[in-house]
Simulated assay, not measured.
Amino acid sequence: MSELCKGRTALVTGAGRGIGAAIAGRLAAEGATVAVNDIDQEAAERTAGEVGGLAVAANVADHDKASGVVDRVEKELGGLDILVNNAGIGYRGPLAEHTPKIWNRVLAVNLSAPFFLAQRAAPLLARNEGAVVNLCSVAMMGISGQVAYDVSKGGLATLTRSLAVELGRAGVRANAVCPGFIDTPMLEQAKDLVEIGARHVRTQPIRRLGTPEEVAAAVSWLASTEASYITGQCLFVDGGWVRS
């Protein structure tokens, strides 16, 4: 494997398992020093051990804790060049069942946390032409029965474009990766979503689920200097779902 991210320091949120763990592994394989964040300390430590990185367990939906994560990365690793906002939660249920608590929690994790982290990390990223990569989703197009999740991912796409415009003059790029139906535990936990995914897989151009490693490859490329003239973009890693 190449070393596209050699000498860079990366923070990946929600990296205790699934896509986040795959991203942490890919960035480490590409030469980056990786800080692994997860709300689950044991999971964060496990992934950090696998990639030879730093475990930073915290709930990044909390503004102060999100800032504390970046503070610790700066103190222990000397700076930050790549921020990957991967942490996310879903909720499956009809509109009528979206209570204020559910709505606020989904938006806090999926949208507010990336904002808090980017806000705190921006001065560090500007030191060395850093990059932000946000994990959005094909759900930003709208999928029945998950309005809070869909809105959070649509908002994250807009946040990505806003960051690209505002931070570009400081040399910081911001892009998003939008996975389609990926074979992860999060997908398997929602039975009806599995069925929706199966229907789309039958009709999309590449007729299978994606893998966490395929998403990680896109993230590492956007984070690397090979994508140095790309910013404000949403890259769909979805087997052609949005085109089918």
Rank of each mutant, 00 (worst) to 15 (best):
W241A: 07
V138Y: 15
G239H: 01
E129M: 12
E195K: 04
E214M: 09
G210Q: 06
E166N: 07
C234V: 10
S144Y: 14
A10G: 03
D62F: 03
A121H: 03
V219A: 10
T47D: 03
L27A: 05
D183K: 07
S67W: 10
E3I: 12
Q233L: 09
R120P: 04
A87Q: 07
V194G: 06
K75D: 10
A15S: 14
S2I: 13
V237T: 01
D40N: 05
H63Q: 12
S144H: 15
G16K: 03
S112W: 11
A24H: 03
E213R: 04
V34W: 05
G232R: 13
A66N: 00
G20Y: 00
L111K: 05
S2H: 12
F236T: 04
K75R: 13
R202S: 03
P100M: 00
L135K: 00
G49H: 12
N85Y: 15
E129Q: 14
Q204A: 06
C234P: 04
V242A: 12
S67E: 14
E42I: 09
A96E: 11
V70E: 02
M141R: 10
P179L: 11
G49Q: 08
T13N: 08
W241F: 13
K65D: 11
A32F: 12
I89D: 01
G130M: 07
G7H: 11
L83F: 14
L167P: 01
A190Y: 12
D38P: 14
A57I: 06
P123A: 13
R243T: 13
L187P: 01
E3Q: 15
D40V: 07
V34T: 02
R46T: 12
V242H: 15
A66M: 04
A58I: 04
G232W: 07
K191I: 02
V133I: 14
